[in-house]
Amino acid sequence: MKKIALIPARYGATRFPGKMMALLGGKTVILRTYESTVNTGVFDDVMVVTDSEDIYNEIVSHGGKAVMSKKEHECGTDRIAEAVVDMDVDIVVNVQGDEPFTQREPLEKLLKVFEGEAGRQVQVASLMQELKDPELVEDPNYVKVAVDKNSNALFFSRSVIPYPRDKAIKTVYYEHIGIYAFRKQMLLDFTQMPMTPLESVEKIECLRYLENGIPMKMVATTYMGVEIDTPEDLKKAAKFL
């Protein structure tokens, strides 16, 4: 299978405009994300897909690969789908541009679910990690996911799921890490599906798959990096670095 990583990156993020070009330890967030993704060594190619000339030039000037996309995309998935239409590729991994600590092991585990006979049935997969800090469980900036016995997603929410009605039962909470892997055709199909009601209200795009009856395989990882959504996250990332 030919596997590539595409990193969607727009300049005007709602909660933290310009975060991709924010400095983290002397390098921009987007450059760190690109370099860490390349350094995993698990992809045949890695590219940043952006609507920003500043981001494009930042990657290309450091010897990286980037492509320009349209500005009007609703989400990162639509942005990478535009870029991948004419590419000869089997599996496309969407690595968020605000994940500067991307590591090899979680990506290897994610790609592995597409292998073998069982893997033929998997069309889209993503990562999750256990959330143990009660404040983060309550934080709507941390998207939670509940899964079935086969690690297929049941629901994603910014609310606390599952709700601990019975305090005597130990409850495990999982945070959804926004790194997705798609078969190419499923990625292209996604862009033809209209936005769904739950997706609209939660502002979580992967709910579109579940609302259309498409299973999403979740892969548990112990990856504990920092996803940069807010200026406070950037401070956390600097400490983590």
Rank of each mutant, 00 (worst) to 15 (best):
N150W: 04
S151F: 11
S151P: 04
S151D: 15
N152L: 15
N152T: 13
N152E: 13
A153T: 08
A153K: 06
A153H: 04
L154T: 14
R158C: 06
S159C: 14
S159Y: 14
V160L: 03
I161S: 13
P162M: 07
Y163L: 15
P164M: 03
P164K: 00
P164N: 05
P164Q: 03
D166A: 10
D166I: 07
D166N: 13
K167D: 07
A168T: 14
I169M: 13
K170T: 08
T171R: 09
T171Y: 06
V172M: 10
Y173G: 09
Y174P: 02
E175D: 08
E175V: 02
E175H: 06
H176E: 12
I177H: 08
G178V: 11
I179K: 04
I179R: 05
Y180I: 12
A181K: 05
A181T: 08
F182C: 07
F182W: 10
R183S: 12
R183P: 11
M186F: 06
M186L: 10
L188D: 07
D189F: 05
D189M: 05
F190K: 03
F190Y: 14
T191Y: 01
T191D: 03
Q192E: 14
Q192T: 13
Q192S: 15
M193Y: 00
M193Q: 03
P194I: 00
P194A: 02
M195N: 00
M195R: 01
P197F: 00
P197C: 02
P197Q: 01
S200M: 04
S200A: 09
V201H: 03
E202I: 05
K203I: 13
K203Q: 15
K203P: 11
K203L: 14
K203C: 12
K203N: 15
I204S: 09
I204Q: 01
E205L: 02
L207T: 07
L207M: 14
L207E: 06
Y209G: 04
Y209V: 05
L210C: 05
L210P: 04
E211H: 01
E211D: 03
G213T: 04
G213E: 00
I214K: 00
P215N: 07
P215E: 08
P215M: 04
M216G: 03
M216I: 15
M216N: 09
M216E: 12
K217H: 10
K217E: 06
M218W: 07
M218Y: 03
M218R: 05
V219I: 12
V219M: 05
A220V: 07
A220T: 10
A220P: 04
T221G: 03
T221C: 01
Y223E: 05
